[in-house]
Design a protein around this nucleic acid. Structure first.
Length: 865
RNA sequence: GCGAGCUUGGCGGAAUGGUAGACGCACGAGACUUAAAAUCUCGAGUCCGCAAGGACGUGCGGGUUCGAGUCCCGCAGCUCGCACCA
């Protein structure tokens, strides 16, 4: 760019300048305990994994948070707005294996790079609170939380079948298995028996469910997803004794326990279905090769997507029979069924075809009896025949002995009473939620602070020996856990008896790290995990912002952890996040030609066509979709900042789309944002140069003052409503009004222009903070920084309008508009409306039935004839 | 299958039950310029009309209302989540 077209705002120079000013003044620092003189506001964005580069999704996320933080700050809140790094995890180990770089170095280098980008974006963060979960100052405190939870009975060690990811060579939580595959590796998951640590999240199942109702500033769908994930269902456990059990079927194997939500239909028993992994199924397989083959087949197909897709119900008759506990004369067969899950309920179901579609399909397929026990409302017991559809909706019990004539809800209670009396079952609440297995056979994570002693068993590492530091000298030359291979690290003396013992070499699931960081931010340097006065003062987070992908796992774990920390005395709140906002993705068009996918910077628009920059050859444009490396439809924030500046990037991501929706990244949108910033700076600079600072108000400025004060109100409303796109639109309007006012002359216009310019500085500041400071410095040299000024107040006087334009409708159709003074008397407005030429013309010869007048809004004439 | 959400110009989107399409992008015309860029001004839902004006118009079909993008009922399409949950 030549000198003659030099930009009004030189972001290369000025943005770092203002960032330095804020830093020099510690503008964004807040004390550990919130100050008493102001209300507190805690804004938090989900902290990033240090993958190497910030991506535009981060820019959107953190810009949204920064707008909230800066706005609330200007509104007089003490704003906590911290940033940190979710720094443990697999990619660092993969980098170590692939590139021979230590995970710690790789991670810290990435953090340095990404921190630089965040700082270059000018976010109002308290950098003194920065934490990285991979540093002992953080994970050591996490170890303390763990040993406290262990002491409080919130942790358990269990042998359990775990989801084993054969590629990553680690255990995964149920939540991390997606369609039978590892969420990260995509490998088919195997079942393996290991001794594992579990956090007893199920202990809090009821409060975690109940308190969802209190989270009224969370998106409905997130609450629904959590509710379903927790999965409370009321029913009964019923024990079916084997009818004439064969020899060897004793102790636990002489009966089958099922879970059912429909004990009322027990007289409709057709079969008992057990999982292929059920102990009884294994027992049968010992002597029955066909059963063994069927089980093997189920296991092979068990979790793959195709099976769920096809959903074919298949079974194998074991030849065993069970007696109905309510009527021991009646027996039913036991089938191994591929649709019965071992890890839900008891791994066994009782089949009642009459009341359950799946059971009906199964019974029909294998020609099992279909006892009819549910009579749909309006049907006659004599004539009712069950077709292909199981009974649903209103019904009463029949053919069910003592339950005949009852509705299902009443019958359930009666059956449970009877079963409990017989000792054959009891009413229970069953949860879908499992305890949280947190052991991972990984190096780059927080060591689990336990020592295993042959004599004493697992011994928690005592406080004075914490933190257990991750050794640095490890090798990645073979699969499995490097901690396990380390020559010396794991060999220690038992803290109890002093005999040689070994350390636990498993590390925590990284979701543990992110389950309490919001609390640590309130006292990031404390010797204890939290300082209760700080944590209780700042928590809950008032506004949490992040992607929807964490709707279940992270948010549920964090809610659990907060309760567990409450129980162990580290804080006394239960819900960590009072307000949750899930922002949409950033998308981009994709481009390809014969050579493959092309990066956005390799193509350019020529008229209606998109062509390859180097060759001018046409390029196919794909729909806008989530940015991905494979489609090369990515944009680098660093690149954007270098070319257009931080404020342009910030303004653009806020401009068009409402934040909860996906937004499309476009080059023209970025250019427009850059243009607006320059235009605004030019306008304000022109005001500073032309209009004297001591100008006085006068009537020539009234119109502009009205626009200015309405903008103050509208931008405030938009930011309160979390719709920065609307705030942006209002700011465009005020800017255009100021531009129009350049042509106005007369007493007072200068003062009005100065006021508008000043207000523009204050109102754009949450979005474009550097530009705002720079404009203010030009407009009012030597005065307070924008960031130290309060949000402007709209004056009522200027919100009132001089005249209002009222639409005049006839039968609800707009026929004209009239200008009247605000709050004009009804008679005057109606008279003016009737005088409007077009309205008068259309009213002629019509009979007026009704006149509707909504003050300052609309007039509607209802006519006939 | 269950659940949540979405559907408004060429595009992103705005709109406490009250003048649909604010604001921006793209587009067109003009000004400035030797020219281009930048900047500025103006225009624009569709159709009919020179115009005044009119008809139609927020996925589709109904309803409530003086008045519906907005509320209610039904349907379709798309997106996301869960999914053999007993």
């Amino acid at each position: 760019m030549s000198d003659t077209t030099a930009p009004a705002f030189d972001f290369q120079d000025r943005e770092p300048f203002w960032q330095n000013e804020w830093k020099r003044r510690s503008t964004f620092a807040v004390p550990d305990v919130p100050p008493a003189d102001r209300p507190k506001y805690y804004v938090l964005e989900m902290f990033p994994y240090p993958s190497g580069q910030l991506h535009v999704g981060h820019v959107r996320n953190y810009t949204l948070g920064d707008v909230v933080a800066r706005y609330k700050r200007a509104r007089g809140f003490a704003v906590m707005h911290p940033m940190g790094w979710d720094a443990f995890g697999l990619p660092a180990e993969n980098a170590a294996r692939e590139r021979n770089v230590h995970p710690g170095k790789w991670t810290m280098d990435n953090i340095a790079t990404m921190r630089g980008t965040l700082q270059r974006l000018g976010f109002s963060l308290d950098w003194d609170r920065e934490i990285a979960t991979c540093l002992p100052e953080y994970y050591g405190k996490q170890q303390k939380l763990f040993t406290d939870m262990l002491a409080a009975g919130l942790v358990e060690r269990r042998d359990s079948l775990v989801n084993w990811d054969p590629v990553d060579e680690t255990v995964l939580a149920n939540e991390q298995v997606v369609d039978g595959r590892g969420w990260r590796s995509g490998a088919l998951i195997e079942k393996k028996k290991l001794s594992q640590w579990f956090l007893k999240i199920t202990k809090f199942a009821q409060p975690l469910l109940d308190d969802l109702k209190t989270l009224d500033r969370w998106p409905e769908r997130v609450r629904t997803m959590q509710e379903r994930w927790i999965g409370r269902s009321e029913g009964a456990r019923v024990r079916f004794a084997l009818h004439q059990p064969p020899a060897g079927y004793d102790e636990d194997l002489d009966s089958v326990e099922v879970f059912t939500t429909r004990p009322d239909t027990l007289f409709g028993l057709s079969f008992v279905g057990i999982s292929a992994e059920h102990p009884l199924a294994r027992k049968v397989a010992e002597t029955n090769p066909q059963a063994a083959a069927f089980i093997e087949e189920c296991r092979r197909l068990g979790t793959s997507e195709e099976v769920i897709e096809a959903a074919e119900k298949r079974g194998f008759d074991t030849g065993l029979r069970v007696a109905n506990p309510l009527d021991p004369e009646k027996t039913a067969p036991v089938w191994i069924a591929n649709f019965v899950l071992m890890d839900y309920g008891t791994g066994a179901v009782f089949g009642c075809p009459c009341g359950d579609q799946r059971d009906l399909d199964f019974a029909r397929k294998y020609d099992l009896p279909v006892p009819q026990v549910l009579l749909p409302a309006g049907q006659d017991a004599e004539t009712f025949v069950l077709g292909k559809k199981a009974v649903s909706g209103d019904a009463t019990l029949f053919n069910s002995g003592f339950l005949d004539g009852l509705d299902p809800a009443t019958a359930r209670k009666k059956v449970i009473e009877r079963l409990e009396g017989l000792g054959a079952g009891k009413g229970v609440v069953n949860w879908r939620l499992r305890d949280w297995g947190i052991s991972r056979q990984r190096y780059w994570g927080c060591p689990i602070p336990v020592i295993h002693c042959d004599a004493c068993g697992p011994v928690p590492v005592p406080d004075e020996l914490l933190p257990v530091i991750l050794p640095e000298d490890v090798t990645f030359d073979r699969p499995g856990n490097p901690l396990d291979h380390h020559p010396t690290w794991k060999h220690v003396d038992c803290p109890h008896c002093g005999k040689p013992a070994v350390r636990e070499t498993d590390t925590f699931d990284t979701f543990v790290d992110s389950s309490w960081y919001f609390a640590r931010f309130t006292s990031p340097h404390a010797e204890t995990p939290t300082v209760p006065a700080a944590a209780n003062g700042w928590l809950p987070v008032d506004q949490y912002i992040g992607g929807i992908e964490h709707a279940i796992l992270h948010l549920l774990y964090a809610r659990f952890f907060t309760r567990a920390m409450h129980e162990t005395g580290h804080l006394d709140v239960d819900e960590p996040f009072a307000g949750l906002f899930t922002q949409g993705m950033v998308t981009h068009e994709s481009y390809r030609d014969d050579s493959g996918w092309l990066y956005p910077e390799d193509v350019e628009r020529q008229g209606d066509q998109v062509v390859r920059r180097e060759t001018g050859t046409p390029v196919q444009v794909g729909r806008s979709e989530k940015m991905s490396k494979s489609k090369r439809n990515t944009v680098s924030p660093v690149d954007i900042i270098e070319r257009f500046g931080a404020d342009t990037a910030r303004w653009f991501v806020l401009s068009d789309s409402p934040p909860e929706r996906d937004m499309e990244w476009t080059a023209s949108g970025v250019a427009a944002a850059a243009r607006f910033g320059q235009r605004l700076h030019r306008l304000v600079s022109a005001v500073a140069a032309r209009d004297a600072a001591d100008s006085v108000h006068g009537t020539a400025g009234d119109d502009l003052r009205r626009v200015t004060h309405r903008a103050i109100a509208a931008v405030g409303d938009a930011l309160e409503a979390f719709t920065p796109n609307v705030a942006v639109a209002r700011l465009h309007e005020l800017t255009s009004a100021l531009a129009d006012a350049e042509r106005v002359e007369g007493a007072g216009i200068a003062a009005a222009r100065r006021e508008a310019a000043q207000v523009l500085c204050l109102l754009v500041a949450p979005m474009m903070p550097h530009l705002a400071e720079d404009m203010m410095a030009v407009l009012e040299p030597g005065s307070a920084l924008v960031v130290e000024r309060p949000w402007p107040e709209a004056e009522e006087k200027w919100l009132a309008v001089q005249s209002v334009t009222i639409g005049v409708q006839i039968l609800g159709k707009l026929r004209g508009t009239i200008e009247v003074p605000p709050n004009a008397p009804k008679e005057d407005v109606l008279a003016a409306a009737k005088n409007e030429p077009n309205v008068a013309r259309l009213l002629e010869g019509k009979r007026l039935v009704k006149e509707i007048h909504v003050p300052n809004r609309i007039v509607n004439f209802v006519v006939a004839g």
